[in-house]
């Protein structure tokens, strides 16, 4: 497992390395993709003011994969109960950034993280941080649907069972403390939240791998919701899905933002414009270039590069 670099992250890392190599000769120090104009990132572009409390506040976050500097001095605050979209070209570090928020990068041996991420004022990179609790509070949905090869019911109740919130073992059954009813409620609630209940309610004991791709992804969202998180991180959740499944996921994200803080990485700028409240644009080299209200970013960005990216001049 130690050599298991998530595909997405490794392509990100490779892509940025490749860029570095191709542009080093022309303009040392600044890495750009072809067609990207040169400019300095100004600090005020990333100063996003919002009402209400910040759920997550990130300060001076740097990530290296070996010698490769994947994320540079990223600071941003993510407001509560809203949808934050992260956009940018391939290899800009947005997935890396997302994985820093619930410390999934710990699973990559080559990754080194420096900086601070606070969840409601508590530092999650503290050496005493309780990773189980952290990941219970900050859930994650991945790019490709990854249900376990178990029944739909077991997929949903997996997290709570492993955390000891639901007890269905032989001993529990013998002593009459069997939580089957609680499990049934949890499964129903989570699946309804993920808008999947009507499609699967009569086959909860079937293997989850028999579902269609869109259904699998919604099952993954339901599985994530079952542990009752506060923040949901989504890494391009609709990129492997067809348009109908994508629109279902998008509706779901909007619905979820009423109760949860959603951070979503996407390649699809229309999607970001449709569903997010605020948007952060990462550009080549692992920099956060601009972070503001979605309308502001898409209609009147400060940075020339961001405007070029959004209008499709590069990326």
């Amino acid at each position: 497992m130690s050599d298991s670099i998530n595909t997405e992250t490794s392509t990100d890392a490779q892509a940025s390395t490749g860029t570095q190599a191709s542009t080093d000769g022309e303009s040392p120090g600044i890495q750009t993709t072809a067609g990207e104009s040169e400019e300095r990132v100004r600090e005020e572009w990333t100063q996003y003011q919002f009402d209400g409390a910040a759920k997550l506040s990130v300060e001076d976050l740097n990530v290296w994969y070996g010698d490769d500097h994947a994320l540079k001095d990223v600071s941003m605050e993510i407001p509560e109960n809203s949808v934050t979209a992260l956009i940018g070209p391939s290899g800009c570090g947005k997935s890396t950034y997302l994985r820093c928020l619930n410390r999934m990068n710990d699973r990559i041996k080559a990754a080194r993280v420096d900086g601070s991420v606070e969840l409601e004022g508590t530092e999650i990179y503290d050496s005493n941080a309780n990773l189980v609790e952290l990941r219970k509070r900050i859930g994650m949905v991945f790019q490709s649907p990854n249900p376990f090869p178990k029944s739909i019911r077991e997929n949903i109740s997996y997290g709570p069972r492993k955390h000891g919130d639901i007890n269905k073992g032989l001993l529990a059954r013998l002593f009459g403390r069997d939580d089957t009813e609680a499990e049934a409620e949890l499964v129903e609630r989570s699946l309804k939240q993920a808008a999947l209940w009507d499609e699967v309610s009569d086959r909860l004991d079937d293997n989850a791998l028999g579902l269609s791709g869109g259904q699998q992804q919604r099952l993954c969202i339901a599985r994530c919701l079952a542990v009752d998180p506060e923040v949901i991180l989504m890494d391009e959740p609709a990129s492997a899905l067809d348009p109908i499944a994508t629109s279902k996921i998008e509706d779901l994200v909007e619905e979820l933002s009423k109760e949860y803080t959603v951070v979503i990485v996407t390649h699809n700028m229309q999607q970001a414009a449709r569903i997010s409240d605020q948007t952060a644009v990462f550009l080549t080299g692992g920099e956060l270039v601009e972070y503001d209200d979605t309308d502001k970013i898409f209609e009147n960005p400060e940075s020339q590069r961001v405007e070029d990216y959004i209008t499709g001049k590069f990326g």
Partner: peptide
Amino acid sequence: PNEYRDASTALGVTQ
């Protein structure tokens, strides 16, 4: 597949 391990870790389940 590593996806299973990722999914489980992201749910806060220990190794």
